[in-house]
Computed example of a mutant assay.
Amino acid sequence: MGINLHDYQTTVKSCATLSGIGVHSGKPVTIRFNPAEPDTGVVFVYTGEHGAGRQLPALVSEVGATALCTVLGEPSGFHVATVEHLMAALLGLGIDNVLIEIDGNEVPVMDGSAAMFVDAIDQAGIETLDVKRRYIRVVKPVRIDSGASWAEFRPYRGTRFEVEIDFDSPAIGRQAFAADIDPVSFRKDMARARTFGFMRDVERLWAGGYALGSSLENSIVIGDDNHVINMEGLRYSDEFVRHKTLDAMGDLALAGARFIGCFKSFRGGHRLNAAALRHLLSDPTAFEIVETNRRSRGRGAEMIAVNAPVYAPWVL
């Protein structure tokens, strides 16, 4: 199967607003999607009382913490936390450029998945811009190991995720999920997969200042009897690994450009995802920057290498 990629960059057609609470902070927050010019990328714009107007680009070089979520900026200073579900929605639906106004320090968790971000983008609409999209194409395998966990990028004609998890819990166990990513498959197979956690960890997380906004309305919770306690059950039989795939998508969306290749991981998480992405981008022999060369309006098209600008966001 050949590469099926869009030639040109995109943004949202109009504005859309979402309000909710931060899953870790428990504080109310509102975000607003705004159209952006070509080559802007994804940029968070703070609109709160103190420091309004400060901007934070959604790039792996800005990642300041990866303990229980992905945090952009300085955790003890200006930052935006829990960006992964929103970033996954932007990657999954093919949004390259957007200014995201936010009046707090954490993206709202909504229902614990990317579904409501997808709805907001659908409400805003998608506009195609007149500047070609550039991709990071993986040209050789790159792997990183961390104990029993590992992650790797491999060359592939498309964008693919292959994620496997292994939890010491009968409710989860060992699960694997693999898919080529496009808007149709993302909406159908990943967007609605929710974050999850264990009841036994709640008091420890609360004591550390985490999960203050977590509830059965935005998380799958596994009880002390190793059963899912949410009344509605699971949205997918393997929702846990699908959500881990969603997380990986969001973390890799911080590359600064879409990648062409296959990302594989075993027992991964935010820290490993960020480390693997940094490892790829730190090796100039492992990837090249390409764009579509379409000679006519027919089906024929190829990806050609281009000279990346010196300010390219993927240069660490």
Rank of each mutant, 00 (worst) to 15 (best):
S296C: 07
D182W: 04
G197V: 12
Y210M: 11
L212D: 01
K264T: 15
E164D: 09
F198H: 12
P28I: 04
D119F: 01
F198P: 07
S149Y: 01
R134D: 09
P183F: 08
L86M: 15
I289E: 08
S282I: 01
T292N: 03
A115C: 01
T17G: 05
F259Y: 15
H279A: 15
D251V: 12
G51I: 09
D168H: 04
V228P: 07
R258F: 13
N293S: 13
G298W: 12
G233F: 08
D251Q: 03
I136E: 05
R294L: 01
H243T: 14
G64E: 14
M249S: 10
K132L: 06
M199W: 00
V23Q: 12
E74N: 11
D103V: 07
V290N: 08
N105Q: 05
V118S: 00
V45L: 15
P183L: 00
T70R: 10
H50Q: 15
A211G: 02
D224K: 12
E164N: 10
D238Y: 10
R267Y: 05
A67V: 04
F259I: 04
A52D: 09
S149R: 13
L254M: 09
D119C: 06
V306Y: 04
W150K: 11
V131Y: 00
I95M: 13
L316G: 15
R143F: 13
V221T: 11
V290I: 07
S214Q: 12
Y135P: 08
F167M: 03
M110C: 05
V63A: 08
V142Q: 10
L91K: 11
Q123M: 06
V80W: 00
A305N: 02
V138F: 05
P141K: 12
A171M: 12
G261S: 10
V12L: 10
L316D: 09
S61M: 06
A176K: 14
V202R: 07
V315F: 14
V42D: 06
G269P: 02
G256Q: 11
S169I: 01
R200N: 13
G173L: 04
L234R: 08
L86I: 06
H85T: 13
P309Y: 10
F266H: 03
V45K: 14
H85K: 09
D168L: 07
T82S: 08
G256W: 11
A301E: 07
G125P: 09
V23H: 11
G104E: 05
T10Q: 04
G209P: 07
Q175Y: 04
P57L: 10
R204G: 03
S149F: 09
D122T: 00
A151L: 00
L316F: 01
Q175R: 14
D251F: 01
F196Y: 12
E37R: 15
M87P: 08
D238C: 05
S113E: 02
P170Y: 14
Y311G: 03
F240G: 01
M199A: 10
S113H: 05
A89F: 15
G22C: 05
V60G: 14
G112T: 01
S296I: 09
L281H: 13
G250K: 06
M249F: 13
D189S: 11
V142Y: 10
R299Y: 04
A305S: 14
G233C: 03
L212G: 03
I3Q: 08
G92C: 01
E49S: 00
G104N: 08
V310Q: 15
